[in-house]
Design a protein around this nucleic acid. Structure first.
Lengths: 337, 337
DNA sequence: TTGTAGGCGTTATCAT
DNA sequence: ATGATAACGCCTACAA
């Protein structure tokens, strides 16, 4: 039993009070050209005084545009996304769009539900980050006929992705230069494509230096703080332990360092660790984390620009890939003798 | 120049295809009682097949309810909020509401803008966390005539707050029991009310133990990782340094510990540190952080329940205060001799 | 049980 | 420069 909250004042109310027709009010409020400047002034003032606020739902009914875009995020706590969101918002606001976030919790059903909810509310377009249903989007496009841009899903035609393979290469090359030969990789089964590309970068560097890829040194995590201890255990149980670990992301790296300390392994003296993302937190960790920087703000910004193009019906769109960079701090050191 | 995206199919389309009137379709889709079960079936199937999705904006025009609530958050990276958001969502979804987040960036104008945007889109209600315009909400209610619930703003009549003073008391009492007498407090100028209450809790415990409150030991931070080093400098410059520091939140605490380490001060041997919030990250920090747990999920859940009551026009509402608890980990130790 | 008509708040297309 | 009128997609009396 929902209360119909006090009806907000409409264009009709203003019209009545001003002794003009609703259409005149509408035109005045939208700075329509052919209308006397003085009425425009007068109406604007009245609207202000009466506390008028236009109804986007009503307007959208006729304009077919809610001036709202939906952004699917995994978690609010996903610090990787903070800057991405800022990038999206900056570009959206500049173009008169509002951005509404909704979290999918890295769950296929949750993600579908969010998309459905966005569509029912007739958002102008959707940006999805951390999708769990990657490849289904091409087909989904028929069910939800609105522009959708994916972040970090390079197989989708409307996508903006950071150079995962390149970033991984830089990280592993750095470890190799420090003399490491037994380098492990802890991946993330929840992030299929990014995981694959980072792993490929890892393998490529090893092969280029004639280091055989040891499958025992490749284990899976879940990309979360709490998911690092278990895959690390496998690594520590090996007859020949790795001297360096390249992690799918910073959270995994921090989880790993935490577990290593508990096991009495010193970082970086006994074991080097590299993360991925360059979360702010990493710089404040002890030791400060060596990691790979993603162009997060640009990721969001470019995604929004792409979405705007799609909203305008343009179709001259190519998937984009943005550069990544190594940030060396204190969790990497020369390999122990 | 926005493209009018391909019109989505409406109840009229279904009506035409089914050879009935639009109202029949509407009734069938809403499980209206007085309609033949077979038509209901038939229409439901057709709607499904044709990929029908109801237009919330259109419906809201007549029902005066968008079944959407707006949640104002400070940042996406504000890990304190993750569980709060989950609490809000759980309760909202259970009642058929969608939750849209929008970030205010702890900025008065930003917050106003978010509220305005929510109102223009005629959300059914709003929940605000981390408000910068606290006391203005009573007056704002006239400008934005819809239900608003605040989190952690106990002076507002529709609010859910965690017991900041109680939590602070537990933290400082813990330090006192460990033998600390020179206990500092690093506050947060950006979070006025919570800051005040935590500081009051801090002062109360000192006074109860006949420890004079030294104003030099009370300094201001900004609640962020990067804002801790500067207030800490003041503390370290004191002729008699504190042996323990109670921080406004976990981010400040981590920033403090980081800076202490750089200054060669050992935590907890030389100086104990306590945070507030119990962010997940704190357990993985080294040393693991002693902190105060806030009932974050419940904060969100109760806020949403309160909002639902308001949406129903009920007015039997009291501000709520939820309990907080001390979590002792490894950043606190007996005071140095 | 179903159809018809009116209206929610707004904009757009005609007239005037 | 302004006013009628229709339409957007949906719901809901009122009629049939």
């Amino acid at each position: 039993m929902r209360r119909k909250s006090a009806r907000s004042i409409s264009i009709k109310d203003i019209a009545r009070a001003a002794g003009v027709s609703p259409s005149t009010v509408s035109r005045a409020l939208n700075n329509h050209p052919r209308i006397s400047p003085e009425t425009t002034q007068r109406i604007a003032k009245m609207a202000q005084d009466m506390g008028y606020s236009p109804s986007v739902p009503a307007r959208s009914l006729v304009t077919q545009d809610t001036a709202t875009i939906g952004l699917t995020i995994t978690h609010v706590s996903d610090t990787f996304l903070a800057k991405v969101v800022q990038g999206v918002e900056a570009e959206a606001h500049k173009n008169g769009y509002a951005v509404f976030l909704s979290s999918s919790y890295r769950d296929r059903e949750g993600e579908m539900e969010v998309i459905r909810s966005f569509y029912e509310r007739r958002v102008s377009g959707i940006i999805v980050s951390g999708s769990q249903i990657d490849n289904d989007y091409l087909e989904l496009q028929t069910r939800f006929p609105l522009p959708i841009v994916l972040i970090n899903c390079p197989i989708y035609p409307y996508s903006v992705t950071s150079d995962n393979q390149g970033g991984a290469r830089k990280a592993v090359e750095h470890l190799f230069q420090l003399g490491h030969c037994r380098i492990a990789y802890i991946g993330n089964r929840k992030s299929h494509l990014s995981n694959l590309n980072r792993m490929n970068g890892y393998k490529a560097v090893l092969q280029e230096h004639d280091i055989p890829v040891d499958p025992q040194l490749i284990v899976d995590g879940n990309g979360e703080l709490a998911g690092a201890a278990e895959p690390l255990r496998h690594l520590m149980a090996l007859p020949q332990r790795p001297t360096a670990i390249f992690c799918f992301n910073d959270l995994t790296a921090i989880g790993v360092i935490h577990a290593l300390k508990e096991a009495g392994v010193q970082v970086p003296q006994d074991c080097s660790v590299v993360g991925f993302d360059n979360l702010e937190m990493g710089a404040y960790y002890s030791p400060p984390l060596t990691t790979v920087q993603q162009p997060r703000f640009e990721l969001g910004q470019h995604a929004m620009r792409m979405l705007l193009k799609l909203c305008q019906g343009r179709d001259d769109i190519e998937p984009e890939i943005l550069q990544t960079d190594l940030v060396v701090r204190k969790t990497t050191a020369p390999a122990p003798a």
